[in-house]
């Protein structure tokens, strides 16, 4: 008898728990639709300067895409939320390609991208009837780094990088790169093939031929692993976003890159004015034009482009020049 009671008690409490939870959720399910209709109601007013309307904005703005752009969108969403606490901006990191897939399936309002949209992706969007505005939000400089113990590398040319990283490369020691360097074996580190960083390096340095894949190279999706790898091996070399170099300056040595006009060290200035070529890249967000009619999305996109400059510096990226931001902001008005 006692035992039966115990079992029933547990069953009952399980059922009660489910019910309570369902009820708690049920109360709020109306929230979304309500906010949507109120959003529609305010949309007429949104053409007036947003300042007076600001307090009333609410709704969901779904963002997904590149993990490289993620820190920027996260920062923008966080700051935007301080002004508009009722607007919810969830951000995912499905990768640039994954982001565009959802974007063109009309599942998200904004796609984060670390490269421009590809032709076939643009075609998908077109078939689905989705028009978008592309906004450049910041620059990132891919930094080529070697170990602190490496005292001979003063700079590398694009040709040398090409020779070292190319598929089927026969380079195994630093001597193979330049005769005056010691015969120290090179240990390569690279982001994995799914990352936009790999894509960008592959395109800018290797002309899309693909990065070598042999026992001399290690791939990792985690940039911190690459930092560990390069700093831990004397002959190591690797590349990743500038932010990861900045955070690990004490462990790594930055390599100036010669793209044909003399060796340039990546820095905030050289990335910003474009002299650090070809390894500096723009980062984008793509905004669905239809979604832009919703006042909260409009407010967020405008907030993003007008405030991302200082935020970019804070999270380790490089802000565009001010006049460039004004140009980008103008795109939203058209």
């Amino acid at each position: 008898m006692l035992k039966a009671k115990g079992f029933k008690g547990i069953l009952m409490s399980g059922i009660v728990m489910t019910l309570v939870f369902a009820a708690a959720c049920g109360n709020n399910t109306g929230g979304n639709t309500a906010t949507n209709s109120s959003a529609a109601a305010t949309s007429a007013a949104s053409e007036a300067p947003a300042a007076s309307e600001a307090a009333k904005l609410s709704g969901d703005i779904k963002v997904d895409g590149s993990s490289t752009v993620f820190p920027l969108t996260e920062a923008a969403a966080e700051e935007f939320n301080k002004e508009h606490p009722d607007v919810r901006v969830p951000v995912g990191v499905s990768g640039t390609g994954g982001g565009f897939k959802q974007f063109c399936a009309n599942e998200i309002a904004i796609a984060d991208a670390s490269r421009p949209i590809k032709e076939e992706e643009a075609a998908n969007c077109k078939t689905a009837g989705i028009e978008y505005t592309e906004l450049t939000v910041a620059y990132d400089g891919l930094s080529v780094v070697v170990s602190k113990d490496n005292d001979f590398v003063d700079h590398l040319t694009v040709e040398e990088l090409n020779k070292m990283f190319m598929t089927g490369s026969t380079v195994t020691t630093w001597k193979d790169v330049r005769d005056t360097w010691p015969a120290e074996p090179i240990v390569f580190f690279s982001p994995g093939a799914d990352s936009g960083t790999y894509d960008y390096f592959n395109e800018a340095i290797l002309d899309k031929a693909g990065i070598r894949n042999d026992k001399a190279i290690s791939f990792s999706e985690d940039d911190n692993t690459l930092v560990q790898g390069v700093s831990g091996s004397k002959g190591g070399i690797g590349y990743f976003g500038f932010a990861y170099f900045e955070e690990n300056q004490d462990k790594l040595k930055l390599v100036p890159i010669d793209g044909g006009t003399g060796a340039i060290t990546p820095s905030h200035e050289t990335i910003k004015d474009g002299t650090y070529a070809p390894l500096s890249r723009p980062l984008f967000i793509y905004v669905n034009k239809k979604e832009l009619e919703r006042p909260e999305v409009n407010a967020f996109a405008n907030y993003y482009i007008n405030n991302i400059g200082p935020l970019a510096d804070e999270v380790g990226y490089i802000a565009l020049p001010d006049e460039k931001y004004a140009e980008e902001a103008a795109k939203l008005q058209s």
Binding site: C25, N28, T29, G31, N32, D60, K62, D64, S67, F70, T73, E74, A77, E78, N81, R88, V89, P90, V91, G92, V93, D222, D223, N224
Partner: peptide, 27 residues
Amino acid sequence: LTYVAFLPNSLMDSFTVMPIQIYNWIS
């Protein structure tokens, strides 16, 4: 999702869980 600065208040809301948040911080 990775960045979620609100609590889900319906079954249909976006959400995140602890291991994802931890992974995001580590990277």
